[in-house]
Write a protein that binds this DNA or RNA. Structure first.
Lengths: 211, 211
DNA sequence: TAAGGTATGTTAATTATAGCACTATCCAAA
DNA sequence: TTTGGATAGTGCTATAATTAACATACCTTA
């Protein structure tokens, strides 16, 4: 298996497949097929097979896939074999929502530290984690060997926040601030922009007739 | 102007361009170029021009683009000329975060109603909007002619929630529940899955070497 | 008024992605 | 043991999207 380039769309779908397989597994189903997966997540069976083919052969021809096995394989592919230490910066409403979001923990993302700049928030506890002042970010993140940072601060301080995170040694950042951030190429960065999502909707609702 | 198909990636970028232009405009800058925009948002100049070319000619050759004009045009393209009425279903932590998110209001998305199933939450006020019982969703959404629904409910009730929204007449849905939803083709649906975003990060951090 | 510089709009080429059709393989039943 | 049915894996085709190159048009200045 060489490292040919994998489309990001494939990775996103793999993540959805694995979630689907978790559900299927809970129902006690042992075996499934590319067709069933496709139905379950709304893509074509060929797409499912193609996505999996990037990484190896996980099924049995004429039979299908073992649900538990395939799920396990995909989790491995996505790097979800072990827990990930995550730090959260910014405890506004969004940060609060993220800190209590169960979906992270379920998938192996463990928030190990939380930071904020507001003195009023420092010292408060969220899910048993104390909110620390931003000044301690570098030390604590280094101590924990935290690899992922979530940025939920106002846009105006987002860049300096990611700079601090990078200095502290994180290798991946999930950014919720609506700004374009500059990071060195070795840092993985993803942006979740809530307004952008709504705007794609309005464009489509207009039936592309508004302009 | 014919309706040739526009890539979704283009729409997402347009949204980012418009945000960038808003910033540039605030600085009092009158004129810009595809190169400057490209630098500002991290894409290639050719990409900027190509994206705009789908919708017409907004610049002056040899000169560039008038910042205010171009911004206005893109806003129109995205359907942001007028306010949109948005309803929010689910007032957990995430729903709360979304309801107070300033970025929506700034871009013309006005939350006009909020619903929840939990009796304890009903009657409370969020940003001057009373949380109503889910039973009133259809009536109220119809009254307001609300076109966009935001789903921030648990995954287990997400499908029935979108069914109610569609029955009430919304034409676009932004879903935060980590499930695959079934909607008729005329309904615009976008999913924001927070865990999926983290998993794309971990895959890339693993350098695609984990498997 | 003409020429040079510059940045757009557009066409062409390259690359990436998805879809399809075919082949190989396995299981079950006769 | 053989045959039929079913489904994964794969190479090819078609489509889409990005990048690059070019031609057009505009402003400025001499």
């Amino acid at each position: 298996m060489k490292t040919l380039k994998i489309p990001e769309a494939t990775i996103i779908r793999l993540s959805v497949y694995s979630r689907h397989l978790t559900d299927v597994d809970r129902k006690g189903i042992i075996t499934t097929s590319s067709g069933e997966i496709a139905d379950g997540v709304g893509v074509s069976p060929a797409q499912v097979r193609k996505d999996l083919a990037y990484f190896g052969e996980f099924g049995t021809r004429g039979v299908g896939y073992n649900v538990k096995d395939l799920r396990q394989h995909i989790m491995r592919i996505l790097g979800l074999g072990v827990d990930w230490s995550v730090t959260l910066v910014g405890v506004g409403n969004l940060g609060l929502a993220l800190s209590t979001y169960k979906g992270f923990r379920d998938r192996g993302f463990v928030i190990t530290s939380i930071f904020d700049a507001d003195p009023k928030k420092i010292g408060t506890k969220i899910e048993n984690i104390e909110v620390l002042p931003i000044e301690q970010l570098e030390t604590v993140v280094k101590q924990n060997s935290t690899q992922i940072g979530i940025v939920a601060v106002p846009a105006s301080v987002a860049q300096e926040t990611v700079d601090k995170l990078i200095k502290a040694g994180v290798s991946a950042i999930l950014n919720f601030a609506p700004v374009v951030l500059n990071v060195p190429p070795e840092i993985e960065l993803r942006n979740v922009d809530l307004a952008v999502n709504l705007e794609v909707l309005t464009f489509n609702v207009c039936g592309q007739r508004c302009y």
